[in-house]
């Protein structure tokens, strides 16, 4: 793909990924076939800020984990009152990273 397109994609979607993944994503996107651009530009990514807000407000019910697609862990959180309150607090700090990793996974389906 053209470098210009790839840079445009990275500029508008940069906040959805970890900073150390950006270089790989850029190289992969440049090597990718042009026909996949339509698919890649329409992927819906999850916002780490949203999941952080949800985690602070409703983390004890595990809704943050349900939102990013970790239903199993979400049930675990829901059943144990947010992991006795400890897991809730731990997730306030981990949920942004987990969201970015989930985004990377949904992009990876198209990259490889």
């Amino acid at each position: 793909m053209e470098a210009q397109k790839v840079d445009m994609f990275l500029m508008s979607n940069g906040k959805f990924f970890e900073s150390h993944q950006m270089n790989t994503v850029r190289e992969r996107l440049i090597a990718l076939d042009d026909s996949k651009w339509a698919m890649i530009s329409t992927i819906q990514f999850k916002d780490p800020t949203t999941s952080l807000i949800v985690s602070i407000l409703a983390g004890s019910l595990g809704i943050d984990r349900f939102i990013i697609g970790d239903s199993g862990l979400g049930i675990g959180k829901l059943l144990t009152c947010g992991g006795f309150g400890i897991w809730t607090i731990v997730d306030w700090f981990l949920i942004s990273k987990a969201t970015r990793e989930k985004n990377m996974q949904s992009l990876q389906q198209f990259l490889y």
């Binding site: 019910l61 009152c81 006795f84 309150g85 809730t88």
Partner: peptide, 16 residues
């Protein structure tokens, strides 16, 4: 009692 919701709102959570 360890439940954050119960401490914060005085209402029990679904798994209290």
């Amino acid at each position: 009692e360890v439940c954050l919701i119960k401490h914060a709102t005085n209402l029990p959570c679904p798994s209290c």
